[in-house]
Simulated scan of single mutants.
Amino acid sequence: MNYYISTTLQTDFQSALARVKDALKDEGFGILSEINIQEKFKEKLDINFRKYTILGACNPPLGHEALTIENKAGVMLPCNVILQETEPGVIEVASIDPFTSMQVIDNDALSQIAKEVKDRLENVIYTLEGENT
């Protein structure tokens, strides 16, 4: 069972980042955090690393519902979405599969929310795939 949902885009990194943010917004997600791993590794470790960004995405109504049902579910929030340049002009976009990750919590109501979040994240990925053709 995969723990992520992914696609590959043929574009530059900044364009991919903008497209991902727009697609997330269209599915009701806000960006709570944005971590530029390439920049952080250079700053903290003096290592040159490929372009790699982690977006912390959250759908506020579903996040609220999840935390109301299971107050420790916050350890799995927000949903991470990554972009990484695998080669020049080739950007992999991947998101956590929240349904799979939430299976460690034995709570059917939470599983239903995780399934809805997964469906929305799949819509993001499939929208990006469709734009790529």
Score class of each variant (00 low, 15 high):
residue 62 L to V: 12
residue 74 G to K: 07
residue 125 I to Y: 00
residue 48 N to P: 01
residue 11 T to Q: 04
residue 42 K to Q: 13
residue 18 A to Q: 07
residue 63 G to L: 08
residue 62 L to E: 14
residue 7 T to S: 02
residue 93 V to L: 05
residue 89 G to D: 00
residue 51 K to S: 07
residue 19 R to F: 07
residue 96 I to R: 04
residue 122 E to A: 12
residue 47 I to H: 04
residue 17 L to E: 13
residue 44 K to N: 12
residue 16 A to D: 03
residue 25 K to G: 08
residue 96 I to K: 06
residue 112 Q to G: 11
residue 37 I to N: 00
residue 66 A to M: 11
residue 133 T to A: 11
residue 82 I to M: 05
residue 23 A to V: 10
residue 124 V to H: 06
residue 129 E to F: 02
residue 98 P to I: 15
residue 76 M to F: 15
residue 116 E to T: 15
residue 109 A to I: 02
residue 47 I to W: 05
residue 108 D to A: 12
residue 121 L to C: 15
residue 74 G to D: 15
residue 35 I to D: 03
residue 97 D to C: 06
residue 120 R to A: 13
residue 80 N to F: 03
residue 126 Y to P: 01
residue 8 T to C: 02
residue 86 T to H: 01
residue 40 K to G: 00
residue 9 L to V: 11
residue 110 L to P: 05
residue 127 T to M: 03
residue 91 I to G: 05
residue 116 E to S: 12
residue 21 K to I: 01
residue 106 D to R: 05
residue 82 I to W: 05
residue 92 E to H: 04
residue 94 A to S: 11
residue 45 L to T: 07
residue 84 Q to D: 02
residue 112 Q to T: 14
residue 98 P to C: 12
residue 101 S to T: 15
residue 45 L to I: 13
residue 105 I to D: 08
residue 109 A to T: 15
residue 70 E to Q: 14
residue 3 Y to S: 06
residue 109 A to H: 07
residue 45 L to K: 05
residue 25 K to N: 11
residue 62 L to W: 09
residue 133 T to V: 09
residue 87 E to Y: 01
residue 4 Y to D: 08
residue 111 S to T: 08
residue 51 K to Y: 03
residue 21 K to Y: 00
residue 128 L to E: 00
residue 15 S to V: 08
residue 116 E to I: 13
residue 111 S to L: 12
residue 87 E to P: 00
residue 114 A to V: 09
residue 117 V to K: 08
residue 77 L to Y: 05
residue 82 I to Q: 00
residue 88 P to L: 04
residue 78 P to N: 09
residue 82 I to E: 02
residue 53 T to W: 00
residue 131 E to T: 05
residue 64 H to T: 15
residue 54 I to G: 07
residue 127 T to A: 09
residue 91 I to C: 02
residue 98 P to K: 01
residue 127 T to L: 04
residue 13 F to R: 03
residue 68 T to K: 14
residue 75 V to K: 09
residue 118 K to S: 14
residue 132 N to K: 00
residue 56 G to M: 02
residue 34 E to A: 02
residue 4 Y to N: 12
residue 46 D to M: 03
residue 21 K to Q: 14
residue 44 K to F: 09
residue 98 P to A: 12
residue 86 T to W: 00
residue 76 M to A: 10
residue 84 Q to P: 02
residue 122 E to V: 15
residue 112 Q to I: 10
residue 33 S to D: 08
residue 129 E to P: 00
residue 42 K to L: 08
residue 125 I to A: 02
residue 55 L to P: 06
residue 39 E to L: 09
residue 76 M to L: 15
residue 17 L to M: 04
residue 3 Y to P: 06
residue 33 S to G: 14
residue 70 E to T: 15
residue 100 T to L: 07
residue 43 E to G: 10
residue 98 P to W: 09
residue 77 L to W: 03
residue 133 T to P: 05
residue 94 A to R: 08
residue 62 L to Q: 14
residue 54 I to V: 14
